[in-house]
């Protein structure tokens, strides 16, 4: 049996363990949250290194992208470099293929994102592939990177402006402690009421809400009107929360395994374990082929 573990900076309340059969092989997939404690995450990574088949880093990005430029998050790199023997991934390789494909899939197989759809991406630099796919499919996209990360009520409306702002700010911002840029630990279990009140307008105006679930959830107002949410990691409680807030449909880019969808870091770690290769050696084409073999499709859940 292969063992894949996701070490997350997120809340331990979301810890989970499943056993699944993938392409004829048994997998034990688990997620271990460290409640925002980076030292605890480092210790856990060192403990797991060499004793499991692949490790995913959750609740943190190592790499952010805007256009062709890659920015390395300092805290994420610390975690990545703590693992010496076992293949370790942050999900960014899979995001670029799987999440892009999810948008194309929804256009082809559903009426959830017709041309001209108003899409709010709560953050795009962590999902640039998805951001590009929405634009390719003629959606009216608002990138909320400045709104939700910096509290600056400035909707970015083009990929060119997103890249330009990223070029000026990200080389420095990635050096800050990650918790200043993204909700980690207990913050993942709470909403930011001040920002919900201030920026809820952007959610209400959109037809589609897309991006990292912890960000989507943290700023979500109670009075949605049937919006589609395209995201990754969700639990049964998250689904209940979305229903309560009035979201119409949930789409998760990663498949459901025993009632919940795991993060892209977990699924990428699974794919790495299947191939037995290092992540640097796996091409986007190989990821796509594996996803097809595994018959991984987006999960669509009608909520209201």
């Amino acid at each position: 049996m292969k063992r894949v573990v996701s070490v997350s900076l997120g809340s331990s309340l979301r810890d989970h363990r499943v056993r699944v059969n993938l392409l004829g092989e048994e997998f034990e997939i688990s997620r271990q949250g460290t409640d925002g404690d980076i030292d605890r995450a480092l210790a856990l990574l060192e403990e797991l290194d060499g004793s499991v088949d692949a490790i995913g880093l959750g609740g943190i990005d190592v790499y952010l992208y805007a256009g062709k430029t890659r920015y390395t998050v300092k805290d994420g790199l610390r975690l990545l470099e703590a693992v010496k023997k076992t293949p370790v991934v942050d999900g960014s390789g899979l995001k670029d293929t799987l999440e892009r494909q999810t948008v194309y899939y929804l256009r082809e197989h559903s009426n959830l994102i017709p041309p001209g759809s108003r899409v709010l991406m709560v953050s795009a630099v962590d999902r640039f592939g998805m951001a590009e796919a929405f634009v390719e499919l003629d959606c009216d996209v608002t990138y909320g990177d400045l709104i939700f990360t910096a509290g600056i009520p400035y909707p970015i409306k083009t990929l060119a402006e997103l890249e330009e702002i990223a070029r000026k700010t990200l080389p420095e911002m990635v050096k800050l402690p990650f918790h200043m840029l993204y909700p980690t630990g207990k913050k993942q279990d709470t909403r930011d009421d001040v920002k919900v009140k201030k920026f809820g307008y952007y959610y209400r105006e959109a037809q589609v809400l897309a991006g990292d679930f912890h960000l989507v959830k943290r700023y979500m107002p109670d009075d949605l009107s049937g919006q589609t949410v395209i995201t990754n990691t969700t639990t049964q409680d998250d689904i209940a929360f979305l229903r309560q807030c009035g979201a119409g449909t949930l789409v998760t880019t990663t498949p459901e395994l025993e009632g919940r969808s795991f993060g892209t870091n977990v699924m990428e770690a699974v794919l790495v374990a299947i191939t037995g290769k290092g992540w640097q050696d796996i091409t986007a084409g190989e990821y796509l082929k594996l996803l097809e073999l595994l018959d991984f499709r987006p999960r669509i859940v009608e909520l209201n």
Partner: peptide, 15 residues
Amino acid sequence: DDIVRLDFISLLIWG
């Protein structure tokens, strides 16, 4: 939140 915002502003001015 204010510290992050001030940081963004400084970076955007000189960039």
